[in-house]
């Protein structure tokens, strides 16, 4: 991989979400929540969801400490999932998981990732994949009623 491809990890949209994370707060009326932890690097976050009777994510938020990649990923996840059916959120989890592990090429395969495709280069940085996926695993864990999610 050449030098330019490597610097592309920190794209403007990631830097911007890191600087001003969306939905960065505790959700008081959460129906689901979980704690995500990456013991390797100490990244630590909480994801809160409010799911209504129609199985739709009415509201979602996160709080925590982490690198730019994990913060931006959590921020973009919450923006994307707000208003989405649980079923669709779970499908998107699968797509995002395949994207960051290099199995899904958004240019080649039909997908609903939208802006999330900005994380497509991350599989070049194996040590950083966990940063991008932590909030997603935590969200999934919250929906499945796990209290703590670890990416180790």
């Amino acid at each position: 991989m050449d030098h330019d491809t490597r610097t592309e990890l920190y794209q403007q949209v990631i830097l911007e979400h890191n600087k001003k994370p969306r939905n960065f707060k505790k959700l008081e009326n959460a129906t689901h929540s979980a704690e995500g932890y990456n013991p390797l690097c100490g990244d630590h976050l909480m994801v809160y969801l409010h799911v209504n009777n129609a199985q739709t994510i009415e509201d979602i938020s996160f709080e925590g400490d982490g690198c730019a990649i994990s913060k931006a990923s959590a921020s973009m996840m919450t923006s994307t999932l707000k208003g989405m059916k649980i079923e669709d959120a779970q499908k998107l989890f699968e797509q995002f998981h395949r994207l960051v592990t290099g199995e899904l090429d958004p240019g080649q395969e039909e997908n609903t990732l939208g802006k999330l495709a900005v994380f497509s280069g991350i599989w070049h940085f194996p040590a950083r994949v966990k940063c991008a996926i932590l909030s997603w695993h935590t969200m999934k864990g919250a929906l499945e009623h796990q209290q703590t999610v670890s990416t180790e």
Partner: peptide, 10 residues
């Protein structure tokens, strides 16, 4: 303002 992991990668 910059997490150690971002410094490490950069």
């Amino acid at each position: 303002g910059i997490h150690a992991h971002d410094i490490g990668t950069l």
